[in-house]
């Protein structure tokens, strides 16, 4: 069942004689329970897409249907079905209220029934019970992020829009939040944007790559790897990386030589031969499947080339 259907979303920001096409005819569909990643360089249109779907920005063209409702005409109904963590989201909280105070305020204006129990549950879930009566201004960035997430979850929405939810937080908090999402939010449909491709690869079922407001690629991460990257990477540690890289046409990454190979066996033989000939001591050889980052860099470079 498709929960989100975006059709030809286009947004142009105009001002003082200039205009910037933030997104250009973006279309995608997301199934119930899916975590859908949107990645792209800065200015690719990720936040604009999230804000359009959240009904906070009106698109110039196109439309989207969320849980059966139209973003242009059913704003209130959509807002009741979504939880949003977008932009500089720690700004979206009241720093002069306590953690609990923020949750209470937003729960009440959202009409959350039995809000005390819901708040207690969320404070427990995010390990914030101990600090609930501290003013938010005294919270660490990671704790503020958790409160922002808790606010988004107050009415237990079936759909979550998470715009760079782990940006600027420490690895421990980041890990905690990811584990929580994996365990607790299995039934939710989530759009997750990030600059961190490893995070997207770990968390998302499918991914949409944007560049300069345009869709450049969409699909399941594994399918994309198979389709666009039909070779493996061979990573070599050796006594003279620059000489070996020159001889085999590889590149040096972190003082190791990396080379792409369709036929790993043949390439390994060649490397060993060259190393013997040039008296290069091989200290270690490993192979790796391409990451989402490899695909991302490839499609972005190709797109820029176009």
């Amino acid at each position: 069942m498709k929960v989100i259907q975006a059709r030809n979303l286009t947004k142009i920001y105009r001002g003082r004689g200039r205009s910037l096409k933030a997104i250009d005819r973006i279309s995608f569909e997301i199934k119930k329970g899916e975590i859908f990643g949107i990645v792209g360089p800065t200015g690719a249109g990720k936040t604009t897409t999230i804000k359009i779907l959240s009904t906070l920005i009106i698109p110039d063209e196109g439309n989207a249907i969320i849980d059966g409702y139209d973003i242009l005409n059913d704003r209130d109904k959509i807002r009741k079905r979504i939880g949003v963590v977008a932009g500089e989201f720690t700004r979206a909280l009241y720093w002069r209220l306590t953690g609990r105070g923020n949750l209470e305020f937003f729960a009440k204006i959202r009409g959350v029934k039995d809000y005390e129990n819901r708040i207690n549950y969320l404070l427990d879930l995010f390990n914030l019970k101990e600090y609930e009566n501290e003013l938010l201004m005294k919270y660490s960035t990671g704790m503020k992020h958790k409160i922002a997430l808790a606010v988004a979850l107050l009415n237990d929405p079936p759909i979550l829009f998470l715009d760079e939810p782990l940006t600027g937080i420490d690895p421990v908090t980041s890990y905690e939040i990811k584990e929580l999402i994996k365990k607790e939010f299995r039934d939710k449909t989530i759009i997750w944007t990030s600059h961190n491709l490893y995070e997207i690869e770990e968390m998302c079922h499918r991914v949409l790559i944007l560049n300069r407001g345009r869709k450049v690629l969409e699909g399941k991460v594994d399918e994309l790897k198979n389709k666009y990257w039909n070779y493996k990477k061979i990573i070599i540690e050796c006594s003279d990386p620059s000489l070996l890289a020159d001889e085999i046409g590889g590149e040096i990454v972190n003082e190791r030589v990396e080379i792409k190979a369709e036929n790993v066996g043949e390439m390994l033989n060649e490397i060993v031969e060259i190393a013997r000939e040039k008296k290069i001591e091989l200290q270690g050889i490993s192979t790796a499947k391409p990451s989402l980052e490899d695909i991302f860099m490839m499609v972005i470079k190709n797109d820029r080339g176009n």
Partner: peptide
Amino acid sequence: MMGTLESILLSST
């Protein structure tokens, strides 16, 4: 300025 207007509007207020 604080950035809280969007959060309030998202509550269907």
